[in-house]
Design a protein around this nucleic acid. Structure first.
Length: 438
RNA sequence: GGAGACGUGCCAGAGCGGCCGAAUGGACUUCACUGCUAAUGAAGGGUCCGGUGAAAGCUGGACCGGGGGUUCAAAUCCCCCCGUCUCCGCCA
């Protein structure tokens, strides 16, 4: 049986598993995961502890012996040396066993998805709940014309060039040109200003990262077909600056007592879109390369849920600024992926598709990423004394992406193909009120 | 890309294969002294994982960039990797 302190200080996964195995099983069931994993993790941890104990005992003996050897001389020394050899051998084998046990536990834990937050709807991709719907879809028949899709508009106003994108780089690549390039920068800049007002530190991040960084953030570099890999250099192109920022504080102990640490990462993002052949092939809805402004927060487990609400609120503020009708959905458990405990998406109405499309996404990853990246918080007792460390929590949320162009162009289009610029965005376009047809 | 130097605690900086978790400064904490500050003197400290205790504490193990190896024994010797710096080359 484990000692009292051992139980309290177990790695958070295992600790939770031991205390709440049913909770974990329920979470796993929601994701159709392997239920026996819970029991295997618990027993792997017991094994690990036993093997570490026997290694440490032997090692202590060896050390004591070493002191005698160092002090002894001549024949006495030779005799002791012969005696300690066996001990050294068993130290080696028990150490190897302990390392193996640690590795086994780690591998099992790595396969374990994050615990789902209370209230997350059950089910799969189609089982999300709509938290709210804001604004109403524009009635183009009342305006007396049939809406053009974003690519048609983009070509009319000289904003998007898919054809040459394909010529230069292949399908799903594009050029943003003229007002298109300006609009992209305007949206990003507006998002950055909002982030600054709310205490975020802007970051321009590396877009190539090491495998450990990719893994730590929760992406599987071996099996994830979405990730571009540079074989020669063993580097990976990020699909979001979340990866770089999560890795930024890897192996660090943070002071999270007062305010969360908030970063706004601005980077180009790369996705292979391997599994989506034939899907969203027109225009810039689904492309290999785009820009994203991403909020990323390090905080405590207790504050994570309220920070999640804040991230969502900031995303909604951004959507309000660009005057788009949207809905907020609470993603169902089975559609959450490994790392998120809960995820809210804001989806904007896309007129020509007559449906809502994801524009932002915010996830509460609780301690999932922090565990893999070894990001802890410094605990301080009420009297100010040191209190050890504990896993931190991480969250992320999109503030703007290239995809926003789609919704803005389509929703604010005029009969002649020009586009009215939302008032909040105009200052970022040098006062431009309309993106005119060329 | 070529050549070389280096990576030790909060920082600077020693370190002979065993008495090194690590000298010495500085910073820091506590105490003393001073009307306050400064200065001075004394004492104390690292991180992580365990055991035991109500707690203070006592106690075992790991950690000298990371990973392997040699050895009874590694901060110290060997190999690989990562990183930093200097010079040359190339380059926005």
């Amino acid at each position: 049986m484990l000692g009292r302190n051992a139980r309290l200080d177990l790695v958070i996964d295992v600790k939770h598993l031991i205390e709440n195995p049913d909770l974990y099983r329920a979470s796993q069931r929601a994701r159709d995961a392997d239920e026996s994993l819970v029991d295997r993790i618990v027993s792997a941890d017991v094994e690990r502890r036993a093997s570490i104990t026997s290694f440490e005992d032997l090692r202590a003996q060896q050390k004591a012996f070493g002191k005698k050897v160092a002090a002894a001389q001549g024949e006495e020394k030779q005799r002791l040396l012969a005696e300690v050899k066996d001990l050294a051998a068993s130290v080696k084998t028990t150490e190897a066993a302990a390392d193996e046990a640690k590795q086994r536990l780690e591998d099992l834990q790595r396969r374990f998805p994050n615990l789902i937050e209370d209230g997350v709807p059950a089910g799969g991709e189609d089982d999300f709940t709509t938290v709210k719907t804001v604004g109403t879809a524009r009635d183009f028949s009342a305006d007396g014309f049939t809406p053009r899709d974003h690519l048609e508009i983009g070509e009319l106003i000289g904003a998007i060039d898919m054809e040459r994108g394909a010529k230069v780089s292949g399908s799903r690549f594009y050029f943003l040109k003229g007002v298109g390039a300006r609009l992209e920068l305007a949206i990003m800049q507006m998002g950055l200003d909002l982030a600054l007002q709310n205490g975020f530190t802007p970051m321009m991040t590396p877009t190539l990262v090491r495998p450990e960084t990719m893994q730590g953030t929760g992406f599987d570099v071996e099996h994830d077909d979405e990730i571009y890999k540079l074989e020669r250099d063993d580097l990976y192109l990020v699909g979001t600056s979340e990866v770089a920022i999560a890795g930024y504080h890897a192996d660090e102990i943070l002071d999270l007592g007062e305010e969360p640490i908030r970063y706004a990462g601005w980077s180009t993002c790369y996705r292979r879109e391997a599994g989506s052949a034939g899907k969203d092939t027109r225009g810039i809805i689904r492309v290999h390369q785009f820009n994203k402004l991403e909020m990323f927060v390090f905080t405590t487990v207790e504050k994570a849920a309220e920070e999640h609400a804040r991230l969502l609120a900031w995303e909604e503020q951004m959507l309000a600024k660009v005057e788009l009708p949207y809905r907020v959905i609470d993603t169902a458990a089975g559609d959450l992926g490994m790392s998120a405990a809960r995820k809210f998406d804001c989806e904007a109405w896309v007129p020509t598709q007559e449906t809502y499309r994801e524009l932002t996404s915010t996830s509460n990853c609780t301690t999932f990423q922090a565990r893999r990246l070894n990001i802890r918080e410094r605990l301080v007792g009420q009297d100010g004394s040191k209190g050890g460390t504990r896993m931190a929590a991480t969250l992320n949320g999109t503030l703007a992406t290239t995809r926003w162009l789609v919704a803005i162009l389509e929703n604010h289009q005029n009969p002649d193909g020009s586009v009215t610029v939302p008032a909040a965005l105009q200052p970022y376009l040098g006062g431009l009120e309309v993106l005119p047809v060329l």
